[in-house]
């Protein structure tokens, strides 16, 4: 009896020890997987900064940030990044002008007016719209939007900023609509009921109570969509062309920061040269601009969120 109980306790402790070892190994593996995301960030930052430093040894930061001519591949070259930043600005502002009012209106419709059945049907469709690959939007711009624009505005170029801005606007509209809808629906019904009880119309309730109460979420959705528009690549490359342009025009071909990166990687630049390093300098700007916007959007969400019970 005593021997058997001793045996069982021994085997028990072995099993327990074995499990603990396995448990530790698994936990280590899980921790490594978690650290992959941290390594990714570190790798991106180190890579971009190191290569940009190499670039700025050849080109003065003054020329890069304030120069107005972007001719990296020809001789004499010029590395003023402003035309690329301007191209991205045109697309982003144009897309935002289209997508913010339309997206917010859709969100208001979904959260304030639509019946549950309509909402259950429309929201997935909008999400589907958000899931369509960007190259498809590029095709849509080239074969549909641009021809329509050309009949309306005959002297518009084949590649133009307007067409790109329109499709990018369509592209980010679902992001704004679905995220803002979530924010508006989080506003408690009691606030609406109180406003209706003192005789407000649905327009007044929406614009003076619901939207202000959900403003942090709504603003965050705008910023997220804008950061997507800045980083958007394929639609803009296909629709708006590859011509660095610093003019205030939506009707001419432009080049965004992302489109430039595509142009270089499709082949002209010899690896290792200054032209190749511009890739990293431009990407660094892109990375930090979008990072800044994302951080502001998270800050707004955390700082200005109205908490209701």
């Amino acid at each position: 009896m005593s021997s058997s109980s001793g045996q069982s306790s021994v085997s028990f402790s072995i099993r327990k020890g074995g499990l603990r070892w396995g448990e530790t190994a698994i936990k280590t593996w899980l921790r490594i997987c978690t650290l992959v995301s941290l390594f990714t960030t570190v790798a991106i930052v180190v890579l971009l900064l190191a290569e940009s430093l190499g670039f700025f040894r050849e080109v003065s930061p003054l020329e890069f940030f304030f120069g107005t001519r972007w001719v990296p591949l020809l001789n004499p070259s010029s590395f003023g990044v402003l035309p690329l930043v301007w191209g991205t600005t045109l697309i982003t502002v144009g897309a935002a002008v289209i997508a913010i009012p339309l997206g917010l209106a859709s969100a208001i419709y979904l959260s304030e007016y639509a019946s549950d059945r309509v909402r259950a049907w429309v929201k997935p469709v909008l999400e589907l719209l958000a899931g369509i690959p960007t190259v498809v939007y590029g095709y849509f711009a080239l074969t549909f939007v641009t021809p329509v624009l050309r009949t309306l505005i005959p002297d518009i170029q084949v590649f133009n900023a307007l067409s790109g801005a329109i499709v990018v606007g369509i592209m980010i509209l679902p992001t704004i609509a679905t995220l803002s809808d979530n924010a508006l629906r989080a506003v408690p019904v009691s606030l609406r009921q109180a406003a209706y009880a003192v005789g407000a119309t649905s327009y007044e309730v929406t614009t003076r109570i619901v939207v202000p109460a959900g403003l942090s979420g709504v603003m965050a959705s705008f910023l997220l969509a804008i950061s997507r528009a800045i980083g958007e690549t394929m639609a803009v490359t296909l629709a708006s062309g590859q011509t660095p342009n610093l003019e205030f025009t939506m009707l001419e071909s432009i080049q965004t920061m992302t489109a430039y990166i595509v142009q270089i990687s499709l082949g002209d630049a010899p690896s290792g040269g200054v032209a190749y390093q511009t890739l990293f300098a431009v990407a660094t700007m892109l990375f930090f601009i979008t990072l800044l916007i994302n951080i502001i959007s998270q800050w707004i969400l955390g700082r200005f969120r109205e908490v209701y019970d």
Binding site: I261, F280, A283, T290, I295
Partner: peptide
Amino acid sequence: ANLAGVPSIVYGIL
């Protein structure tokens, strides 16, 4: 959360 917002083209460069 921030990585999710990095433009895809930057991942391409990485």
